[in-house]
Structures are given as structure tokens and as C-alpha cells.
């Protein structure tokens, strides 16, 4: 459906996502080759946003699986809904005794009950989790597996199996094969090394911080109310901050928050007072704040938003 890299880029920009040629190329290839995309990079540069934008651009449903330590198959794939099964058994007790009442022997009763077994192990009682939903969906979907580096190594191995075959076997029901291969995005903040096998199966892209012009364009697109001149100043300030060797660099999403804050405060210029009052939107550590104040010449450690007037 997207025949060129350019078309991918355009489709994403219609979703208000500014994709570099690199990103567009990788997505184009992912669609063509049917391979998952593994996106790495610092937090808040739009890795998650990319998959959402792609889902919107292709008008597919968006399914998200957030990884965390201890995530297992029953939370990621499927689970039997015991409570519902219990409830049904209770409510159907009369019906069951009707069915079994004229049985001549215990064996016959057991056989009859076994014949009805399928009622209790059907999709009715199956609780699909994100992975199964993505495989089983009638429409093609975009599946986001977010922060895969937070999950355990064995979950990663299990994921490999799902991602290579796009099929799941449920002992009671049989094998469910995907009708459409979902487009899979994996994101990682690189807190731990992912297995080589998983990396091998993915197309890899590293999304870093955008350069000044790109970020400016993002700000213009997402916060159109900010005056162009102020927007440029703000973006340049953020870039200066990223050079400072901070504990936590301000991300793109924080730049956007800051831009919105500036609009809300009706700021006209990045003067001392505005900076003092809004720097907390960008920086989340006290030591970073102190360093930034020094860098911007706001004078020392005198504290929070106390401007000299």
C-alpha cells in the first residue's frame, strides 16, 4: 500500500509525526519484509508515538503490550477466566443434573459430561491478552511491545517464538494462526542487553534526539500557538541543556510540555523570570536545576523560582 519511502514519510507527517528518512525507510522495509521493528534510544524521543502514528496512518487497530519485570504468558497471551467458568457451572447445575439424571452408570454420566466439555473450554471463557488479540484480530493490527528491556529473559524467548511464527497453540483449543501478520514495534531504553536472537529477527533503528531544526518543526506542529521566535529560543535552550552532562536530559516530550507551559503563561520572551518559573518542566533533578541555572546565568543556588525584581 506504500510503494515508496517518500509515501511512508508523507503518511506519517499527515498524522503529525515528523519522520526522518531513516525512520521512514525502516518502516517501509518492515512492511515489505514483514519484520518487527526494534526501536532503541533515550526516553521520550517518540518511539512509542511512532507506532501510534503508524497505526493511525494505516488505519489499523493499535494494540499495546507494556512490559515489566515478571510479565508472563498469562498476562501477555491468554488466560482462562476461571471465575466465569465457575459461575456458569453453578448456574447450569440444574441443566447438568437433567442431562445426567437418566444415565445408567457412572461411566455413562462421565461420558456425557465429557461430551459437553467443549462448552467450558471455548473462546467464550478465554481472556485474550494483547499478543493473542494481535494475532487473532480480524483486521490487520499494529502491535506495540513497549520497553521490552524491562521484561525477563525468558519472556523474551517466548516472544521470539510468537514473533517468528505468528501462531499460538492453546492446548484446549488448538493452534490459532494469524489471519494477518500484525506490524510489530518493539521499543527498548537499553537498560539491559537484548538477546542476539531477538535482535536478529528485527529491523533495528536507533532514534536519538532530533537536531534543532527537526525539533523546531515538531514544536511548531504540536504547539502552533507558540510564537516562532520564542519557539526557536526554547528549542535552542533545550539543545544547550542537552550538552550539559545532566543526570537526565530533557526529552522531546518535555520540550513540548515546556512549549505548552510557555503558551499558558503567555510568555513573550525567555527572560529570567520565565526561566525560573518553568525550568522544572524540563529538569527533574535538583542537581540538574542548579547546573542549568549556572549555565543560563540565573545565579547560583538561591532556589525555586525566586526572581529578583
Amino acid at each position: 500500500m506504500f510503494e515508496t519511502v517518500r509515501a511512508v514519510q508523507k503518511a506519517l507527517s499527515e498524522q503529525r509525526y515528523i519522520a526522518s528518512e531513516d525512520i521512514a525507510t525502516v518502516i517501509f522495509l518492515a512492511e515489505k519484509l514483514g519484520k518487527p521493528v526494534l526501536a532503541e534510544g533515550p526516553a521520550g524521543v517518540g518511539k512509542t508515538e511512532l507506532s501510534k502514528a503508524w497505526a493511525a496512518a494505516t488505519q489499523r487497530s493499535f494494540i499495546r503490550l507494556q512490559c515489566y519485570e515478571g510479565l508472563d504468558e498469562s498476562k501477555a497471551l491468554y488466560e482462562w477466566e476461571y471465575a466465569k467458568q465457575m459461575l456458569y457451572t453453578q448456574l447450569l447445575r440444574d441443566k447438568l443434573s437433567d442431562l445426567l439424571s437418566d444415565a445408567q452408570s457412572l461411566a455413562e454420566a462421565a461420558d456425557r459430561l465429557a461430551a459437553e466439555e467443549d462448552v467450558f473450554f471455548s473462546e467464550r471463557f478465554l481472556l485474550s491478552r494483547p499478543l493473542l488479540r494481535a494475532i487473532d484480530s480480524d483486521e490487520p493490527a499494529v502491535l506495540l511491545i513497549d520497553e521490552i528491556d524491562r521484561s525477563d529473559a525468558e519472556f523474551e524467548a517466548f516472544l521470539l517464538e510468537v514473533l517468528s511464527d505468528f501462531q499460538v497453540s492453546i492446548p484446549e483449543l488448538g493452534t490459532i494462526v494469524a489471519r494477518h501478520h500484525p506490524t510489530v514495534f518493539l521499543t527498548s531504553n537499553n537498560t539491559r542487553e537484548l538477546s542476539e536472537a531477538l535482535k536478529r529477527r528485527c529491523l533495528y533503528i536507533y532514534i536519538g534526539y532530533p537536531d534543532t531544526e527537526e525539533e523546531l518543526e515538531i514544536v511548531r506542529l504540536k504547539v502552533p500557538d507558540l510564537s516562532p521566535q520564542l519557539a526557536r529560543q526554547a528549542v535552542e535552550a533545550v539543545h544547550a541543556l542537552r550538552q550539559l552532562d545532566l543526570k537526565k536530559n530533557p526529552s522531546v516530550s518535555e520540550t513540548l510540555d515546556w512549549a505548552r507551559a510557555l503558551v499558558t503563561l503567555n510568555a513573550t520572551a525567555l527572560d529570567r523570570e520565565v526561566l525560573e518559573n518553568t525550568l522544572t518542566v524540563l529538569l527533574k533533578y535538583e542537581s540538574d536545576m542548579a547546573r542549568a541555572r549556572r549555565a543560563f546565568g540565573l545565579g547560583g543556588n538561591s532556589g525555586h523560582g525566586r526572581a529578583n525584581r
Binding site: E21, V26, E196, L203, Y204, Y206
Partner: peptide, 16 residues
């Protein structure tokens, strides 16, 4: 050229 380069990089290099 740039697309070609990205193509090779995304398929061959899996580590920043």
C-alpha cells in the same frame, strides 16, 4: 544513496 545506506544499516547492524 541515503535510503540504501539506511537499508543496509537497519538489516545488518543491531546495536547502536
Amino acid at each position: 544513496h541515503s535510503v540504501f545506506r539506511t537499508t543496509l544499516r537497519t538489516t545488518l547492524i543491531k546495536d547502536a
